[in-house]
């Protein structure tokens, strides 16, 4: 073997702080307008670049790839917008959350703008697993009478499961474990507004489009061309008790933009 080469990092990996010792900054952000069409992996790299541009003291993992220590809430379907997305970022040192939020805002495209930030408990479960209650709204055109759609969804819910094709794979969603509630309303233009409240967990989730496709198939109608899907709430639910993502945090920083 040749002589040992200088290492690029001055601290040995085993001497670096563990993840649990690092401050955990939770940031809420939107996903709106044309960036609703950004896929989850592209969103992750975009947010990571925003954080680097913001100059936040982010922590880097000790693995081979030296990745930023960041966790995201569950992936949105491509095309769905949201007012309640979250990421948790481990920092190497604690900084004023208001300053962190301000710097992030200045370095983030408006369509995924952050609007709230605060430190949360270091040992909370990962966001994707913890935020198990997800509520959606879906805007449709005047596709059918509201009552007819409501009845169809009720019938699907009574059956307890939805089968659908994803790519070439058959998928089954257990509605008894995922569907908490639903509603169908009409707006002033005759368009339909559908609410779908869901629970998700390890390997189980319900996308509203799947439920609506099944309902329209049951009605013998074509599914609407481009429904406007929006995630409007993500929280933790435990034994019927709702825990908000920033519950227990002090010094919650809020954007002036929202």
């Amino acid at each position: 073997m040749s002589d040992p080469r200088p290492q690029p990092f001055s601290v040995r990996p085993q001497d670096l702080p563990t993840k649990a010792e690092l401050p955990r900054l939770r940031v809420a952000y939107v996903k709106d307008s044309r960036l609703a069409y950004l896929g989850h992996l592209d969103l992750i790299s975009t947010v990571e670049r925003c954080i680097r541009r913001a100059g936040l003291p982010f922590s880097v993992g000790n693995g081979f790839a030296r990745r930023m220590r960041i966790q995201f809430s569950s992936a949105l379907p491509v095309g769905a917008s949201s007012c309640c997305e979250y990421f948790d970022l481990r920092l190497t040192k604690r900084m004023d959350p208001q300053e962190a939020l301000g710097r992030l805002e200045a370095s983030t495209p408006r369509a995924i703008a952050p609007y709230r930030a605060a430190y949360v408990g270091s040992r909370l479960p990962a966001l994707e697993a913890w935020l198990n209650r997800v509520d959606w709204s879906v805007g449709l055109g005047p596709a059918c009478p509201a009552d007819e759609l409501f009845d169809a969804i009720r019938e699907i819910a009574r059956r307890g499961e939805v089968r659908y094709l994803r790519g070439e794979k058959d998928k089954v969603v257990d509605l008894t474990r995922t569907l908490c509630g639903y509603s169908v309303g009409e707006d002033e233009t005759g368009g339909l507004s559908v609410g779908v409240d869901t629970l998700c967990g390890a390997g189980v989730s319900l996308r509203p489009q799947v439920l609506l496709d099944a309902a329209f198939a049951l009605m013998g109608r074509p599914a609407p061309d481009a429904p406007r899907v929006r995630r409007h709430r993500q929280v933790h639910e435990e034994d019927g008790r709702i825990v908000e993502p920033f519950c227990g945090s002090d010094a919650i920083a809020t954007s002036s933009l929202f």
Binding site: R34, L35, Y37, L38, D42, C50, G79, P109, A111, D225
Partner: peptide, 14 residues
Amino acid sequence: PHVEHPSRYLNHEW
């Protein structure tokens, strides 16, 4: 909604 990789057509990049 009907095409692969819609992010190809979004613009407004940083």
